[in-house]
Design a protein around this nucleic acid. Structure first.
Lengths: 170, 170
DNA sequence: CCAATAATCTTAGATATATAAGTTTATTTG
DNA sequence: CAAATAAACTTATATATCTAAGATTATTGG
């Protein structure tokens, strides 16, 4: 990983321990998201796996044979994101992309043995990040936070969809 | 904005309303962060401002004359991110970059009238996103969530810094 | 059954972010 | 004070993501 002075750490902490205006939840979510990604990325890098690839591996460890479209929905990203990641993962021989039953449109994704074997190696790393991140937070507060995030996700998904509908009125 | 069917919406909701494993806070934070960014981005786009530029404008509306380095710390991003954003913002005549007191190393950032005038236009948009996102969440739960996020940010900043220190041991 | 429509994947190009390394300028120290 | 070091900005390059639009293949409805 990268050599890095820890001015960064200090500045993030200082930043949030000064004044946190009541209406700035969004910034906290963004900072937390970036730091979570960075922590996991550092751990995954030791095994040659990027953050983006890991998010698809996770899904495939549970269910193989999904189409690219289905994988996109499951991962919560747009198709081009999925496409790019899967092409790279294919090149790294983590997955295979196969047409099934003579359907030449849908591409189904399967893990290679190599991709499958990473499960036991990488899963603990993600658990470790979650454990570290939530150290000192009570189970009750975790639940409340999860519910708040869930509410935000619902509210925003609806908000974004409403915008799209207005645009596509014709 | 983009025409968009709302399959996306449904999939995000379905995704999180199925099984949310106890140790997957990170995914919720990431989803929430992406949706928050997207919501704000849609609103800012109507005024020709990108999400990245807005995050520096916010800081400058409070304090002008910071150096690029100081702005990076304040925004919580690395210097190249700041550099790229500020160059683009300069080209759009939202800011000016000036050397002060004969110091030819530090560059201080100042708003143009145009950049300054955006404050009253854009601030309500961010407030709107926060309001929409947190609809139906009690003040108590908001506070708990904020505290949890703050704890996560602290924990992770320390974790990332610890990694860096190990790397730069020599 | 074939033409129109829809689904799926792909390409192109943009934005937001990072790390690593280079350049220039200021500061420090022998 | 001059050489070494550090600070600040810049360049180069990579990753993760998006929207918009194109290409191909399936499905559907007249």
């Amino acid at each position: 990983m990268a050599p890095n002075n820890n001015r960064e750490t200090q500045s993030v902490l200082q930043h949030w321990h000064r004044d946190v205006p009541n209406d700035r939840m969004a910034h906290m979510v963004r900072d937390a998201s970036r730091l979570l990604a960075k922590s996991l990325q550092g751990r995954l890098a030791d095994h040659g796996v990027s953050f983006g690839h890991w998010s698809f591996l996770r899904i495939l460890w549970v269910t193989e044979g999904l189409t690219q479209r289905e994988l996109s929905e499951e991962a919560g990203v747009m198709e081009p994101t999925t496409f790019t990641a899967l092409k790279a993962m294919e090149a790294k021989q983590l997955i295979e992309r196969r047409h099934l039953n003579g359907n030449r449109r849908k591409l189904h994704i399967f893990l290679t043995d190599k991709g499958r074997a990473l499960k036991d190696v990488l899963t603990p790393l993600a658990e470790d990040v979650n454990r570290v991140a939530l150290a000192g937070v009570s189970e009750e507060d975790r639940t409340t936070t999860r519910n708040t995030l869930l509410a935000m996700i619902d509210n925003l998904a609806i908000d974004n969809a409403a915008d799209s509908e207005i645009d596509s009125n014709d």
